[in-house]
Each structure stands twice: as C-alpha cells, then as structure tokens.
C-alpha cells in the first residue's frame, strides 16, 4: 500500500492528481490518500480528508511507501522509521503554501537514503517507478544533534537552581 499524506493545513491537489493518474495505470497498487481537503476527487485511490493521529500512524507504518508534501512531521517520522518516502515540496508560486519554506526544507534532505525529493510530475513518476528503499535506521540520522539539543534544554532548566 502507498500512503499519500499532505498535512492538515492546506490541500495539495497537484500532488493528488499526479498520484491518481499514476494509479490509473497501476491498478495492482493500493493507494490511500489523506488529502487535507481540496476539491479534487481521485478515481483510482481511496481518499480520506483527515485522519486521527492514531489512524495516521497506523497507515504510515503499514505503508510500503509514503508520498508527502515537505512537512516536517512526516519527514521526521520517515527518518526515524527508515520508511521510504517521496517528497514533493509545495510551491508558493502555485498557491500551494504561503511561502517557499518547503523548498528550503526539501533542499536539506538530499543525503537521506530513504527519501527522494521530486519537483514536478515527471520526476514524481520516475520516483514511483523506482522508489527509495527502506533502511534499518531505528533512530534518526545525527541523533547527536538531538542529544545536544536535549542537553542544552536540560542545563538551561536547572541553571540557577543552586544545586546544579
């Protein structure tokens, strides 16, 4: 199953239309789309506008491949789980978001093995034909960075308590 998820803030019909077109020619693949609203109704995929976080987690974990916008929630979960992920950033020029921060975010993902970033429909279809593979990460890349952050927060919280 391929799980397509675009967050809850804004629809992303460009991505969903592309998915549906590909699904039309690949009836052997099951698609579940979390669409975040939007007017487009796919003919070849199951669409849910919104799902609960628990349902989202279930769909995410049971998917063979995940397709999403460049939202950090999905990206972090994919890194943590080593889940294959295709990311298509939203573009402000197409009114898909308020600004182009998703392009910037996506630009930082190039070294992550299980994530492929695509810019347009053509690249997206290429990625679907040869999707990224699952990696056995267990924990996120660069967990040193997370420890550093947590240690900084801890130190700051106990700072000035006298017994630190």
């Amino acid at each position: 199953m391929i799980f397509v998820t675009v967050g809850t803030q804004l629809p992303f019909d460009r991505l969903i239309e592309s998915v549906d077109l590909w699904a039309k020619n690949h009836s052997e693949v099951e698609f579940i789309i979390q669409s975040g609203g939007g007017g487009f109704n796919p003919l070849h995929c199951e669409k849910k506008e919104f799902v609960s976080p628990m349902e989202w987690e279930r769909l995410f974990l049971s998917a063979d491949l995940v397709v999403s916008h460049a939202g950090m929630g999905t990206i972090i979960k994919a890194i943590d789980a080593g889940k294959p992920l295709i990311v298509m950033p939203r573009k402000a020029s197409l009114n898909e978001h308020r600004n182009d921060h998703q392009l910037a975010t996506a630009g930082q993902l190039k070294d992550i093995e299980n994530i492929v970033v695509v810019d347009n429909e053509k690249e997206f279809y290429m990625a679907l034909d040869a999707p990224p593979v699952c990696i056995n990460s267990g924990f996120g890349r660069g967990s040193d960075n997370l420890c550093m952050l947590i240690d900084e927060i801890k130190s700051f919280v106990i700072e000035g308590d006298g017994n630190a």
């Binding site: 967050g7 809850t8 976080p53 950090m72 972090i76 947590i150 801890k154 919280v157």
Partner: peptide, 22 residues
C-alpha cells in the same frame, strides 16, 4: 518542576515530542 509544552499539531508537535525527553 512544572513544565508547559506547547505546539500546534503536525510538524511542530512531532518535533516538540522529541524534546520531551529533557
């Protein structure tokens, strides 16, 4: 200590939950 952890759901929430270990 009493700690208030605040985040909109989605990406903000996922990131904040990773810091909760602190």
């Amino acid at each position: 200590k009493k700690v208030l952890l605040v985040a909109s759901h989605g990406g903000h929430w996922v990131q904040m939950r990773k810091m909760a270990a602190a």
